[in-house]
Each structure stands twice: as C-alpha cells, then as structure tokens.
C-alpha cells in the first residue's frame, strides 16, 4: 500500500462520513427493524476501518519504509506529460506535484500548459495564493 496515495485518505473520509450518517439515522428512527439494519451497517464500516488501521500499522512497522522523496531532473520530469497513460507531473518552486487527477488538468493539460515541466513562472503569473498547492499530492523534488 502506498500511503502517499490519495486513495487512502479518500477511503478514510468516506468511512467517517458513512459512520456519522448511519448513526444519525439509527437515533432518529423509531422502527426496531431499521435500527438493527443500521447497527449491521455500522459494524461493517468498523470492520473496514479496522482493516485500514491494520494496513497502516504494517506499513510503518516495515523497517525500509521511510517517506523518501524521489528526485527528478528536468529530463526525467519531461517523461510525465500525461500522454499515453503516463502520470502528469508538474513542478512548482522545486517541488514536483502529481496533477494526473487534478480536475483542471484534463488530459495532462491546463489552460494551454502541458504537464512534464517546471511551471513555477506560469504558476506565479496566474495564482496568487500558494495554498492550492497543498491539495496536490507531492511526488518528489526537482534537482
């Protein structure tokens, strides 16, 4: 399992959302059959939560698994253009981000820009706040 993967936090947030919803319904319904049904659903979710925690535990107890940053040269970065099934990476301020699933980056292109490049200057000319970068998964640093 890769904990950098968005998928992990995504799954976690889905489980929490469902848990809170089921609990709400459980308390609001007077029907005992329905209550039983939701208890069942809640225990299901707890099972998944448990297995996720387990995975996380295993990951960190492995001796070789430290969070290591991959280093990219510009030529290496240029491979990740989003074309032909490759991921789409873009560098800003020396950090390489994965924009493959970023909604404004359809097909690895973003308002006339193509992935696989250092786009620091372009970023600065269009975006004031750097906060939006925090939502992007980091894949490494540019050297």
């Amino acid at each position: 399992m890769n904990i950098h993967n968005n998928n992990f936090s995504c799954q976690l947030s889905h489980i929490t959302y469902r848990l809170s919803y089921y609990t709400k319904v459980f308390f609001s319904t007077p029907n005992p059959w329905e209550k039983m049904y939701y208890v069942n659903l809640i225990s299901n979710e707890l099972f998944w939560l448990n297995s996720l925690t387990q995975q996380l535990w295993e990951y960190f107890t492995e001796p070789n698994n430290t969070i290591e940053e991959k280093q990219f040269t510009l030529t290496e970065l240029a491979k990740y253009t989003g074309a032909n099934g490759t991921p789409a990476y873009a560098a800003v301020n020396g950090i390489v981000y994965d924009v493959s699933l970023e909604e404004t980056w359809g097909g690895g292109s973003h308002f006339g820009l193509i992935a696989g490049k250092d786009l620091t200057n372009q970023f600065k000319s269009c975006h004031q706040a750097e906060a939006i970068l925090n939502n992007l998964p980091v894949v490494g640093v540019l050297i």
Binding site: G82, G85, E103, G106, G107, G108, S109
Partner: peptide, 18 residues
Amino acid sequence: EKLGEPFCMFKLGCRGPV
C-alpha cells in the same frame, strides 16, 4: 483511453471540469 468509449474522458483532455 480513446474516443468512442463510454467512460470518463478526463484523461483525453475533457474540459468539463473548467
């Protein structure tokens, strides 16, 4: 992965999100 498929066309450059 190509036109003509009934799935999400985001990776082909869909501009729906913008």
